[in-house]
Structure formats: structure tokens, C-alpha cells
Amino acid sequence: MSNPLQGAQFVLAAHRVHQLPADSGAEVAFAGRSNAGKSSALNALTGHRGLARTSKTPGRTQQMVAFSLPPVAQGEGQPSLEARLIDLPGYGYAKVPEPLREHWKQEIDAYLNQRKSLRGVVLIADIRHPLKEFDRMMLEFCFATGLPCHLLLTKADKLSRNQAAQALAAMRKSFPDGLHATAQIFSSPAGTGVEEAREAVMRLLREGRVASDE
């Protein structure tokens, strides 16, 4: 099967929201704690091993990084969508200085609330551990704003297949009613769930935010 995310290219790294590419087209944000395997997941999904920097020292992504994608086809008669992936700074790692941590908290909040082209969030979380405060905050934001979220439970290769399946089932049960979120098992080194995750990203790019009932 061809990879719809192949051809992703680095565009820029932004310290502030207003430095990102023009707020048009469609983009999906990747969020997660610094040690959850976000860069490895981006590299696996795009098929570009060196696209996002990986490091044995978590917290290396300290800017919002924009990657362009090939245009996304829409329905018949509609123009293709300009598409991007946005890698948000890894959050919560203890060695990041407090002023920088507070800066990114504010910038991530501004990004999520201001970007009209944002179609959805891919949230990266280590399958071996319960969701952290940042993860829960992200899910709550998506719930409150109707923003679709796809949860990648990474590092599944560290568990048995049965343990991973149980963790996934428990995670899905914990979602509140009305949360437009999906979840899956994922492992970058083992290639587990890569095709499923690519399909989820493309679905987010095409479908976008859920209309509010208010």
C-alpha cells in the first residue's frame, strides 16, 4: 500500500504561533510528553527516518515544527487541500527550564485555540503508563472544542500482545461519552499500527473539527 504521508518535508521551526505557515489548508498536530516517542512516530508514519529528530535525551523538540505534505485530495470537483503536520514541543520533561516550560504551555494553548486550519490532534502516550496530566488536559480540550483526537499508544513492543490489547481496551473505556477520540496500539521499531495510524491522520486532514451542538 502506498504511503499518503510520503513526501513530507521540513518547512520551518517556530518559537511563536504567528511564525507558523499561513493559517490555511489543513493541518494535524502531534502532541505528547517528551519521552513518549513522538519523533519516532512521525518518522515511521512519513517513511522518512530523519524527518523529526530523535534523541536519547527527551525534550529535544523545543519549537513548533511544520512539515509540508503532498496535497490532500477531497471530493469530486473540489480542489486539493494544502496539508501540513505540526510537531508540538514535547511537554513535561523535568530538565526543561521552568520559564521555557511555561512559554510552551502558553504557545501550545494559543496554537490550539487560534489555528483555524487545525483539523485534529494525534496524541502520543506510552502504553506502559497511565495518562499524565498533560495528556488528560489535551483530551479535555479536544472534548470541549469538538476537535477530533487520535491516540497512539506507543512502545507496544515492550508489552506482550495480550497486555497491549488490555491496555488499549482500558484506555477506550476511560474516554468520556461524547469525546471524538480514537485509540490504537503503536510501535515505531516493530512497525505495529503504522498503516492504521496513517489512515487516521488522513481522515483527520479530510474531515476536521466536529460541529458543536450549541
Rank of each mutant, 00 (worst) to 15 (best):
R53K: 15
T46F: 08
D126V: 13
L205C: 14
Q63A: 14
A200R: 05
G75V: 08
F143T: 02
R203D: 10
L85M: 10
P176K: 01
L118W: 02
V121E: 04
Q63T: 10
R53L: 10
F10D: 04
R203E: 14
P70N: 12
D177K: 13
F175R: 00
F134H: 09
L12E: 10
G47P: 11
S80V: 12
P70T: 12
E82P: 06
L118D: 05
N113F: 12
L179I: 02
D157F: 08
Q74P: 01
D126E: 14
L51F: 13
H129T: 12
L5D: 03
E140N: 13
L159D: 09
K158H: 11
S55Q: 10
G50E: 12
G75L: 03
H129Q: 14
P21W: 02
L81P: 05
R172A: 04
R136Q: 14
H48V: 11
G47D: 08
R60H: 13
L147I: 07
R203A: 13
A41T: 15
L152E: 04
R115K: 10
R84W: 11
P99L: 03
L118G: 00
P189L: 13
C142M: 07
L152K: 07
A31V: 13
P21Q: 11
A31E: 07
D109E: 14
E27H: 05
H48D: 08
P21V: 08
G120T: 08
T154W: 02
L131K: 07
Q6H: 15
E76G: 02
R198H: 09
L205D: 01
Q163F: 05
F67P: 00
N35K: 13
G75Y: 09
P4E: 11
Q6D: 14
L5T: 02
Q62F: 00
Q163L: 09
P99G: 02
L100R: 10
F134A: 04
L88S: 01
G120I: 02
A36K: 06
F134T: 02
Q9D: 00
T182W: 01
R203I: 01
Q9F: 05
P99H: 11
A36R: 02
M137N: 15
K173T: 13
M137H: 14
K38Q: 08
A110F: 12
L12Y: 01
P99N: 01
H129S: 05
E195G: 09
L42E: 05
L112W: 04
Q63N: 13
P189S: 11
V65T: 14
T154L: 06
Q6V: 03
Q19R: 00
M171K: 03
A29T: 08
A144Q: 15
